[in-house]
């Protein structure tokens, strides 16, 4: 079996949302001598990127996207373990703390962003909805997060994003975490005004912005 066939099989396993198959392809590809980062980049990531595009076109839906991201995690775990076994540094998934801000219970968009981020290899701590500034910060400290993501759908609750940034500043933690805002009412202008590091227009854009913030 040639490398190209492994890449295709890897992408297909993600698109089929098949966790066992994804892990199996990863193991067989590694056994055939393909480097872990090669099978990830040329196979699995191609598959998950295609799923993201299909989601935005209304051709696959949230349950499939969540299952695909689970399959992606299974494949990534196999590759990561292989790197460690070979004496390399096992890739540690960077932690992101994400939630819908206090006073706001709209969590559909946030859930989609979580699925996209997990599919892209991030260790996402989903705090859910109606999350206070204190909870955001406490969780970020606990898990040594790299990024804090704050979602707000409403013009009346987006000010809570500002409160979280102010709380970070008060506690001397502002520079410690990269911050990103998103949700129906947020814009790049708003992110600039309140001093957030980035604004995510939608789930795909949020992944791109977080990748850029973390130099991926």
């Amino acid at each position: 079996m040639g490398n190209e066939e492994f890449y295709k099989e890897a992408g297909d396993a993600i698109k089929a949302c098949d966790k066992e198959k994804a892990a199996d392809v990863a193991k067989r590809a590694l056994a055939a001598g393909i480097a872990p980062d090669e099978i990830l980049k040329k196979g699995f990531i191609v598959g998950i990127t295609e799923m993201g595009d299909l989601f935005e076109r209304g051709q696959v839906f949230l349950p499939e996207l969540v299952l695909a991201s689970d399959a992606m995690s299974a494949a990534a775990a196999v590759c990561s373990a292989a790197v460690a076994e070979a004496g390399g540094d096992e890739e540690v998934e960077e932690a992101i703390v994400l939630g819908t801000v206090q006073g706001d219970v709209h969590d559909i968009g946030k859930t989609i962003v979580v699925a996209f981020l997990r599919a892209n290899g991030y260790n996402v701590h989903d705090l859910g909805r109606d999350v206070s500034a204190d909870k955001f910060i406490a969780k970020a400290e606990e898990v040594d997060a790299k990024v804090i993501g704050m979602s707000a759908l409403l013009t009346t609750t987006m000010r809570e994003q500002k409160r979280i940034l102010e709380a970070l500043e008060k506690q001397g933690l502002k520079g410690k975490y990269k911050t990103i805002v998103g949700g129906g009412a947020s814009t790049q202008n708003w992110a600039d005004q309140i001093g957030a590091d980035a604004y995510g227009e939608d789930a795909n854009d949020s992944v791109k912005k977080i990748n850029a913030l973390l130099g991926r």
Binding site: P63, V66, D70
Partner: peptide, 17 residues
């Protein structure tokens, strides 16, 4: 938390499709 049914946003990440 507003109604009687479990939130799908909580069930989906647990793969309870």
């Amino acid at each position: 938390p507003d109604g009687p049914f479990t939130n799908p946003a909580d069930l989906l990440p647990l793969m309870k499709m």
